[in-house]
């Protein structure tokens, strides 16, 4: 469970171009569910995702993590907490640690690193953890197989088709086996067949027990069967939530 309490996020505060992207959001995201943020462009979906994923800090409000805390044992010990962790007040280096152990990100533009191979792109999130090289390559190859990228493991990512790139991005998000997957407009660059495939993959991840949070305005996404909850976002605020 991830809980947001009256979270606000403003940009360029106290400047003429001040802009409040998220205003007073209170929300609980259940574990092992697929949650979709839906809303028009500029409504604040991406901002919400980066707040949840500890990429940025809110201007005010609290964000609490309640599951999978043993994964970030070190931070808990330092904070004297055991069953929940308030993240907004943590220093940058802890946020990084949380990001790399708890969250896997799938970006709208895939954001793969050009010029290096599929295999290395997938392995990248594991490097700061200092895991054994053998273990890491084995896991990366397992992911490559899962996503049917076997033949392309040593191809440079810029040679990949859109669907392949998407799958590499997913594999990279799963590299450190995070409990939560965050995907921002994952189908924006895919045709409908690939979008359906993507949602099937998501469904598979849900069955593995992952928590999935997606931002999208693609009907193919929020009309898919495995979605548990759709949250409407408009002007940085939430409007009702259905299943």
């Amino acid at each position: 469970m991830i809980r947001l309490l009256d979270v606000r996020k403003g940009f360029n505060l106290a400047k003429p171009n001040e802009y409040i992207a998220v205003s007073g959001v209170t929300l609980t995201i259940e574990a092992n569910r697929v949650t979709v943020f839906k809303g028009p462009s500029g409504s604040g979906k991406t901002t919400l995702l980066s707040l949840i994923g500890c990429m940025t800090r809110p201007t005010s409000g609290r964000i609490e993590l309640m599951d999978n805390l043993p994964l970030i044992n070190g931070i808990l010990r330092d904070n004297g907490e055991t069953n929940r962790l308030e993240v907004t007040s943590l220093p940058e280096r802890f946020l990084t640690e949380i990001r790399r152990r708890l969250f896997g990100f799938i970006f709208q533009q895939f954001n793969l690193i050009k010029g290096i191979t599929v295999l290395e792109n997938i392995m990248l999130p594991s490097y700061p953890l200092g895991r054994k090289h053998g273990f890491v390559t084995e896991r990366a190859h397992a992911l490559i197989d899962t996503f049917g990228l076997g033949a392309r493991a040593s191809a440079k990512v810029e040679w990949l088709s859109g669907g392949e790139a998407q799958r590499v991005a997913i594999a990279r998000a799963l590299m450190n086996d995070p409990p939560v997957i965050i995907a921002d407009e994952p189908t924006a660059h895919l045709d409908s067949k690939l979008s359906v495939e993507f949602m099937e993959i998501i469904s598979g991840l849900k069955n593995q027990g992952k928590t999935i949070i997606i931002a999208s305005h693609d009907p193919l996404v929020f009309e898919a069967g495995m979605i548990d909850r759709i949250i409407n976002v408009r002007d940085g605020m939430l409007y009702g939530s259905g299943t």
Binding site: E92, T96, F107, I113, L124, P125, P128, R172
Partner: peptide, 19 residues
């Protein structure tokens, strides 16, 4: 711009500034 983008990606997927 490309290199800056890469740095951003690395940080987003959990690399620290020092890395």
């Amino acid at each position: 711009a490309e290199e800056r983008r890469e740095i951003g990606i690395l940080k987003a997927i959990g690399w620290e500034t020092s890395d």
